[in-house]
Design a protein around this nucleic acid. Structure first.
Length: 272
DNA sequence: CAGCAATTGAGTCTTACCTCA
DNA sequence: CCTGAGGTAAGACTCAATTGC
């Protein structure tokens, strides 16, 4: 033995005897099965003077009693490292070797550390997952906004080239194939679309109507499906664009389509 | 010399499989 | 043939103890 004397490791013969009987008691208590008697262990240990046998028998000693564990645990709760005096006291109180108490605390600290690592890992992982999820949402939101921006850029740009009416012809997506040839239908933007992505408030895009009471006409003009299509664009984004309120720009309720604007009936042809 | 990390080895638990009445 | 009880082997797991630093 390198670090501790044989005496310390094994204790006195009386202690060894005690250990063996304790072991038997514990095993019987734990399993309810018939186990090797303490006397036979003692007998073999006393008859054999070699270390190996002692070691082997000593190795057989397993599992501290519930009471011992309870005491050790409660002590561990108050302090994870034992003062030498406390160790001796506790060992005496529990009928254990001081070395055993020291080892128990050592192993207990290792278990605690392992649990702590696990807890920390879980906390970090949850935090990471949350961030990753938010990042993904923001990413898709960004893509949706980019698409929308592109669409709106086209919408702002192209009609101007072709129209002199409102400074803007309203372009629709390809599905907006309303059959109106109404010559005096015209739309205009009161101001340029502006994107505002701030704290989830999202798209702040206003297309001011030339008239407030044109909703029904618009529905008539585009049909319900078109309105729905427009709404769906908004739904592809997360949060910001998820409601018709936020998706104000192309929502009929905002009166985007001002029928007071006239002429230029083929505006949808320029929709990308 | 005590503490730590890694490892060992014995005890315990769980599960699947088999036999038999 | 199906079923439940009992036995058991294998593998996983736990934990006191050992080893090396």
């Amino acid at each position: 033995m390198k670090k501790q004397s044989i005496e310390e490791m094994l204790g006195t013969e009386e202690e060894f005897l005690l250990d063996c009987s304790t072991t038997t008691t514990m095993e019987t208590r734990a399993t309810g099965l018939k186990v090797e008697s303490s006397s036979s262990i003692l007998e073999s240990s006393l008859n054999d003077t070699t270390m190996m046998v002692r070691k082997k028998n000593n190795k057989k000693k397993k599992r501290f009693s519930d009471e011992q564990i309870k005491s050790l645990e409660s002590m561990f709760e108050t302090e994870t490292k034992l003062e030498p005096k406390m160790k001796l006291l506790l060992a005496k109180e529990l009928g254990l070797q001081p070395r055993q108490v020291a080892i128990w605390f050592q192993n207990r600290r290792a278990r605690w550390k392992s649990k702590q690592l696990e807890r920390d890992y879980n906390i970090l992982k949850a935090s990471y997952d949350d961030l990753a999820s938010k990042f993904e949402n923001l990413e898709s939101e960004k893509q949706a906004l980019i698409k929308q921006l592109q669409r709106l850029s086209d919408l702002v740009g192209k009609p101007r080239e072709e129209s002199s009416c409102c400074g803007l012809g309203l372009a629709g997506n390809s599905s907006m194939d309303g059959d109106s040839d109404n010559g005096d239908t015209k739309y205009k933007f009161e101001k340029k679309p502006e994107l505002s992505v701030e704290g989830g408030d999202g798209l702040d895009f206003r297309l001011d109507p030339c008239s407030e009471d044109e909703h029904s006409k618009e529905l008539e003009y585009f049909g319900q499906d078109e309105e729905h299509d427009l709404m769906n664009i908004g739904e592809t984004t997360y949060g910001i664009l998820s409601s018709s309120e936020d998706w104000g720009g192309l929502d009929d309720s905002t009166g985007l389509f001002d029928q007071s604007c006239s002429g230029n009936s083929q505006w949808w042809e320029v929709w990308p």
